[in-house]
Design a protein around this nucleic acid. Structure first.
Lengths: 345, 345
DNA sequence: GTGAAAGCGCTAACAT
DNA sequence: ATGTTAGCGCTTTCAC
């Protein structure tokens, strides 16, 4: 199975084409300055021999790897309960592939993993890193920053430490939340409640802020803290109903939570949207489309987010000898969200 | 940001420890034959300098990369509609990490990607490959086989081509399906229908076979072909109800399909499980637990599947100079499934 | 047990 | 425009 067909080297190609290794290298790397007849001969030799450059040898001298690490912190299993992760990866993969870069995936769970990742990054295997720093106070960002690798974050990092030019891509969580609440208000609702996400993630905080932007003077009992899970959506909905039986709308921090809330509303005999209107966040398809009734929610373009992260990083990598440090690099890029109307509100 | 702190080399460590490069190399690679006092001195030098071996240089001579490719074919977006993918990756990642191997992720969508993957694999960047070949007739398996890399498949490949010792890991789809149907029978149901998955995937075929194992003489109209989607679950359920109004149970090829079927049953005023019992497959948590009523389903341990794939591959890679070719390598490993009882059946 | 030296396959000056 | 040459940082015989 593992037969050892020694792959042809530059040398072999050179011999076959009757030129020097340098010339072959030039042709292979597309640097101009090789005249056509010769170049053609080299190209033929290359595919007659099925030559493929040895990346290790190349990296050894160029110090480039054409590979970037994608680091996903997933202390909770939340990442794995939803299809986000895959979408993001797909976006990243597409962009990376288009630029001939490899995607090295690093999944981390506990602190041991952090050390490992730090070592890996410091080990110079990759040219840059894409990081999903899910939680506030995560030690990962600092570790990475210290490794001195160009990095782009997915989701606004809670980078208290320094107002430096951290590059990140995020959805407009705050704006999306405002849209959701305004939509509810536009429906004539006035007692709008909010079930938050896990407040150790900036996305949850931002959505809460968005809610407050619109509902500045709302009864504080209309806000209950959740954690993005369905179980918590149920619990929170019950709590809400007990506290404020008169509420007529709920904005949940994500679709899963909204699904939980929906179930409790049904169980209590309340009709959606007639008695209580519900809006979610994410537009996580398998969930949002299949709740009863289908969920009105705030969509974020998760794949585009991944693609953009990769694009930003690659651009950074291309300015090899950093001409201007903080030049035109926006430190944060916020992607717009859109409200998707279904039956629940 | 990208400051160029030239990393210490073996040479540097050797100098600091007052030994030769060879000795440092031996210590770093844990090969015995270096006496304690010396070894200790080397180790100190290593972490005083924060030395990390240069993988490219190492690969250049060892021809090992300590990296494996994970190839996910996803012509459909199905992969991205469910959390499978993430679970599988997690299992793989854990195992690889434990053995200091890197995970290079290759997502493919169309035939261009196939060529690219073929080139990459042939390019000798990785030591082996883990492949999720989702569809029958997928050209990927052959491409990979030709690259001559040790490979393990996720899901039984439809390897008509050759009865060679293809290594794969799969769930016991057929057995699980049998369990599901028997459970339904045990509930006293007699007119059990089946909504199949996309029959160009072996998992769907195997589940159908399992159904038939138990319902050998069932009315053929009780089987309708689906494609693993919810939309199709709805459509198929309607079709089924029209064809055989008397049916009293449904086994759906996966949970998403089952969710669709459930919706139609409710819409038609049929009660679950009283009038019609429903069983799904996968135990995809965010779905199965949240349907109305919660879904009885067949669980597969998807993370373990990933872990096992990685383990099998690594074992293969370790027998560097293949002592016995087809020795003890099982060509296929089937993981058991378990029936999870909830309210729907 | 330890060191010296020869490459691994490639790129990038530097010559020509 | 093309060839020559010197490494990149490491492992691995082979001497000692």
């Amino acid at each position: 199975m593992t037969e050892t067909v020694p792959r042809p080297t530059l040398e072999a190609v050179a011999a076959r084409a009757g030129v020097s290794r340098a010339t072959v290298s030039r042709v292979v790397n597309g640097s101009d300055g090789v005249r056509e007849p010769l170049a053609e001969r080299v190209r033929r030799a290359v595919d007659e021999l099925g030559y493929v450059p040895n990346q290790a040898a190349r990296s050894l001298v160029t110090k480039r790897h054409d590979a970037v690490a994608v680091i996903v912190a997933e202390p909770e299993t939340r990442v794995f309960a939803d299809p986000f992760f895959a979408r993001q990866l797909r976006g990243i993969s597409k962009e990376l592939t288009a630029h001939d870069n490899q995607l090295v995936l690093l999944l981390t769970e506990d602190r041991d993993d952090h050390a490992r990742v730090g070592r890996y990054l410091a080990g110079g295997h990759v040219d840059g890193a894409l990081v999903f720093s899910l939680h506030i106070d995560d030690p990962l960002p600092e570790l990475i920053q210290r490794a001195g690798l160009p990095t782009v974050f997915g989701g606004r990092p809670d980078w208290n430490g320094g107002p430096d030019g951290v590059v990140y891509v995020d959805s407009d969580n705050r704006g999306g939340a405002r849209d959701a609440v305004r939509h509810l208000l536009g429906l004539g609702r006035s007692r709008v409640a909010h079930i938050t996400g896990a407040l150790d993630q900036t996305s949850a905080v931002d959505r809460l802020d968005g809610f407050r932007d619109v509902m500045a003077d709302a009864d504080p009992r209309l806000v209950v803290e959740g954690d993005f899970t369905a179980a918590c959506g149920e619990w929170a909905m019950r709590e809400l109903l007990d506290r404020c039986p008169g509420l007529d709308a709920v904005f949940a921090a994500n679709d899963i939570t909204a699904a939980g809330a929906l179930r409790v509303l049904r169980e209590r005999g309340l009709r959606v949207p007639d008695d209580v209107a519900v809006v979610g966040f994410d537009d996580m398809l398998p969930i949002a489309e299949q709740t009863e009734p289908p969920l009105t929610t705030v969509r974020q373009d998760i794949e585009e987010m991944g693609r953009l992260m990769a694009r930003l990083l690659l651009r950074d990598l291309d300015r090899t000898t950093a001409p201007d440090e903080s030049g035109g690099t926006p430190s944060g890029v916020i992607l717009p969200t859109t409200l998707v109307r279904r039956a629940s509100a």
